[in-house]
C-alpha cells in the first residue's frame, strides 16, 4: 500500500515545528525516524494533511551526562544506544533493551522519542523509562514542561502530548552505585513486537524496587505488590507468585490462563535476572 497525499515541511527550529504542528483545521504529525509512522501511513491506518519533519532539529539530538543523571535527546536512535554511544549509567540495561528492538535496519533510524510518543502498548522504551523513574521534556506553544514518563503515557497509543507539543528528550535520574536490574521479554520471533515484557530495577542499595510489566495491557504498568515483596527480601516463591497474581488481577483483569502464565513467567524471569546481579 502507498500513503495518501500530504504536504511536507522541514522547519528549522523547535518553535517553528511546534507552530506547524499546532495549525488549526489540519491533521498534522511530526516525523522522526518514520519507522512507525510510515508503516501506518502506507497501510492507511493513519491519515494526515501535513507532515512536519523534526528529524534534523539539533535541539532533539543532544545526549548529556549531568551530575543528576542522563539526558537523552528524542532523536537518539535505538542503534546508537545499542552501540554504546550513550553513556552507560545503568549497568548495560539501555543497551540490552535497545539491541532487542525490531531489526538493525529499523533500529538505525527509529528513535526513543518516537517510541514513547507513539505509546504502542508493546513498545520497549516506555516500560524501561518508567522503571528507571525517567521524565520526559516537552516543548510546546505555551513553553516547556516536564513530566514523569509514567504520567505521560496514558493508554494504548495515548499520551498527554497536546497539539503543537514535541518531545525534546528524556531525563534519567542517576542511579546509586549498587544499581541492579532485570529484564525479560517474550517474542514469537526475534525482532517482532513482544507479547510480554518485564523490568525489575533497584536504583541503589536502599532505594525502592521498581517492577514494570509491558505489552500486557493498554500501557506499561508498575507492579507494586510484587515490588513490595522483593523489597522485603524474604518472599518465598509461593508468596511472590501470589503478589504477581494480585498485580495481574489489577492490570490485566481479562487475562486468560495462558496470558496469566505468560506474564507471571516473564516477571519471574526478570526477577531471576535481577537477583543474579
Amino acid at each position: 500500500m502507498k500513503a495518501a497525499p500530504f504536504e511536507y515541511l522541514r522547519p528549522a527550529s523547535v518553535a517553528e515545528a511546534s507552530a506547524a504542528l499546532g495549525r488549526n483545521g489540519m491533521t498534522t504529525a511530526a516525523i522522526a525516524g518514520g519507522q512507525s509512522l510510515l508503516p501506518m501511513l502506507n497501510l492507511r491506518v493513519a491519515f494526515i494533511d501535513l507532515l512536519v519533519d523534526i528529524s534534523r532539529l539539533d535541539e532533539l539530538r543532544a545526549v548529556t551526562e549531568t551530575p543528576s543523571g542522563l539526558q537523552i535527546g528524542a532523536l537518539t536512535t535505538h542503534a546508537a544506544i545499542e552501540d554504546g554511544k550513550v553513556p552507560d549509567l545503568f549497568g548495560g540495561l539501555l543497551r540490552r533493551v535497545a539491541g532487542q528492538i525490531s531489526y538493525r535496519a529499523v533500529r538505525n533510524h527509529g528513535t526513543i522519542g518516537g517510541s514513547v510518543a507513539l505509546a504502542d502498548p508493546a513498545a520497549d522504551w516506555p516500560g524501561c523509562l518508567m522503571a528507571l523513574g525517567a521524565s520526559v521534556r516537552i516543548a510546546g506553544p505555551s513553553g516547556a514542561r516536564s513530566e514523569l514518563v509514567s504520567d505521560f503515557v496514558q493508554g494504548s497509543y495515548s499520551t498527554s502530548l497536546a497539539a503543537g507539543e514535541i518531545i525534546l528528550g528524556f531525563e534519567l535520574p542517576r542511579p546509586g552505585a549498587s544499581l541492579r536490574w532485570g529484564f525479560a521479554k517474550v517474542v514469537r520471533k526475534s525482532g517482532a513486537f513482544a507479547s510480554s515484557i518485564a523490568f525489575v530495577v533497584t536504583p541503589g542499595r536502599s532505594a525502592p524496587v521498581s517492577v514494570v510489566l509491558a505489552a500486557a495491557a493498554a500501557r506499561a504498568q508498575a507492579c507494586p505488590e510484587t515490588a513490595q515483596h522483593l523489597q522485603r527480601g524474604t518472599a518465598t516463591d509461593e508468596a511472590l507468585r501470589q503478589a504477581i497474581a494480585r498485580d495481574l488481577a489489577v492490570h490485566v483483569p481479562d487475562a486468560d490462563a495462558y496470558q496469566q502464565r505468560l506474564h507471571t513467567a516473564t516477571i519471574l524471569r526478570a526477577i531471576r535476572d535481577w537477583r543474579a546481579q
Partner: peptide, 23 residues
C-alpha cells in the same frame, strides 16, 4: 511495504535502511 520483510533494504548514509520506510 511496512518494514516486515527486508526485501527493500538499502544503505542510507552508511547504515542499512528499509527503503519502504523512508520518504
Amino acid at each position: 511495504e511496512h518494514g516486515a520483510c527486508g526485501a527493500c533494504t538499502v544503505v542510507l548514509d552508511g547504515q542499512a535502511a528499509r527503503s519502504c520506510l523512508q520518504l
